[in-house]
Amino acid sequence: MNEIREITTPLTDEIIQSLSCGEMVYITGKVYTARDLAHGRIMVMLDAGEAMPFEFTGNIVFYAGPSPAPPGKCCGSIGPTTAGRMDLHSPTLIAHGLKAMMGKGLRADPVRAAIRAHGGIYFAAIGGVAALMSKSIKSVEIVAFEDLGTEAVRLLEVEKFPAIVAIDSRGCCIYDR
């Protein structure tokens, strides 16, 4: 088997375009968590013309809500939630500059079309290997919506976080194969 490629954020267009569906990668750098309720709030803020809680360009949004960090650890168990629940909002966020998403499972056709149109990417992380994945998290900081508990937006510093390119910038999807 070939050496697994390591990519580092910020993800440039060049990096995104060089990745192909089905390829396994290790991600190092900054990742922002946002799931159901955070997406709802971000959409309201977009409508109101407010500033986003984090910069979209170059960053990865990870659909995840970690378990609480036990003493002596920076992060509890963490892993992807079903990406499909964010399908309603993703095309709008992609149109506003979000290029990279990470979650679990299939995406709706409009999301795939938006990824293709804007040269984005969707990574699939493995669901339910969350104690193992927590080892790749080096720091966690809440950056928005703290009242949402596990659904708050968190900035994660990740190191060699394993993921698979599920939809590449050309719209090719691993689940089609």
Partner: peptide, 28 residues
């Protein structure tokens, strides 16, 4: 294939979770 590699990660994750008393999956 990939499926086998995933199973391996799941098995390893089970060991870490049990020994460190951490949730197997963040969704508890």
């Amino acid at each position: 294939g990939l499926g086998g590699q995933v199973l391996e990660k799941m098995l390893l994750n089970q060991e870490i979770a049990k020994s460190e008393r951490m949730p197997i999956c963040q969704d508890t």
